[in-house]
Design a protein around this nucleic acid. Structure first.
Lengths: 213, 213
DNA sequence: GGTATCTTTCCGACAATTCTGAAACAACGC
DNA sequence: GCGTTGTTTCAGAATTGTCGGAAAGATACC
């Protein structure tokens, strides 16, 4: 090899890129982000084009997408007309940006939908017709889902407030918690099913394929 | 309308489906999951085909995908040869399943990649060549990223241990925290940039388009 | 073993996303 | 104003992903 550093960066960029696919982010966008992240220094469009072998249009579009996410910022160098792009290298701050953006784009719309669904069946709720049970069950699940989403939102908010060091300090709690049966909240539905289903999901990945061929 | 309950379910299913796209999950898979979730009762392949207007092959593939995720379980009814599928309706447990699965599929591989990247530049690290600064910066970011991932993993682990009610009890803390300047951990890099960048990202979504046309 | 019933896989067709290259656009200096 | 430099957009091409229907496979019951 001629340059271990370059190879190492390339490896991370590639992996980060394919990971982007899992997250509904285009591979190129993720790769550009990774490139800017590992580089640390501001890069211009031509740098991105050269290092990632993408077209100018593609680079431009995705760089704009990244700035729209707030993950990348435009910077200018004195005496240079080119626009440079620099990634946020503070990982925790990156997380904050992504969290807020995803909440705005995804969580809030789904909560609005849940509320609307709830309204649609509100009048049925009190009536005593054949579908009363079904309706009640549906509403219960709707409410649980909504509660979960807001609770998770609150947890993230809290995590952001505590910051990286704050959350890191919580780690020892895990050790303590895993020693005892667990201070798990008394949720009637959750506790009994947890153990059984967990082993089930574990088996799923290694279970024998359907007896075929 | 002839059935508000049906319409309400359909709405949630549709929204849930399009949300799936953001998460690298196919729309149909998300819709099937939503259908099973809102129904609560076990459904067979034909039910899914009829209610979602998808082919048998498509339904079969995605139902299997969901069971592989551990979000849906096969159930059998006595005296019926058909296989039925039932979604986990405990939202918190669903979250646990998804968290563990995503960690296994995504977080662990990226951590392995980071470690490998770290090894690749390990020998360069000590040398005193021209790229020493660059290498040091790269390694620092690598370490930060790795630390963040493990910390978040720990946080999720903790959240799962506390369970829904446990986390919900944390909510009041947020109110308390938002009153004061914030007990945010003393992270040299994070604090100063947070305010500026946040307004930046907010402006991004409403900012004036490029002066065009 | 044979048949009926249900499930899974395969592959061509279709749809959506992503990428490229070129043209249009803006900014700057002369 | 006009050329130079750099950026953004757009339409079509290419890639990728998803779906439907049919054929093959598995299982239970007779």
């Amino acid at each position: 090899m001629h340059d271990a550093l370059t190879d190492s960066k390339a490896l991370l960029i590639r992996r980060w890129g394919e990971l982007g696919g899992y997250w509904g982010i285009s591979r190129t966008m993720a790769e550009i982000h990774a490139l800017l992240f590992v580089t640390g220094e501001p890069l211009c469009t031509d740098d991105v084009m050269a290092q990632l072998h993408v077209s100018r249009g593609n680079a431009s579009m995705n760089l704009r997408g990244l700035t729209d996410w707030g993950l990348v910022q435009r910077v200018h160098k004195l005496g240079d007309r080119k626009e440079y792009f620099q990634a946020d290298t503070d990982v925790w701050h990156m997380f904050e940006t992504i969290t807020r953006e995803r909440r705005r784009r995804e969580v809030e719309p789904i909560i609005a939908t849940i509320d609307r669904c709830r309204e649609m069946v509100a009048q049925l709720d009190s009536r005593e017709d054949r579908a009363a049970d079904e309706t009640r069950g549906f509403c219960r699940r709707l409410d649980e889902l909504r509660g979960f989403l807001t609770t998770m939102g609150a947890l993230f908010e809290l995590a952001l407030r505590f910051g990286p060091t704050g959350v890191a300090q919580l780690a020892p709690l895990i050790q303590a918690a895993s020693g005892q049966p667990g201070p798990r909240g008394p949720t009637p539905a959750a506790a009994p099913r947890a153990a059984a289903a967990r082993t089930g999901s574990k088996r799923a990945k290694t279970r024998a394929r359907r007896p075929r061929r």
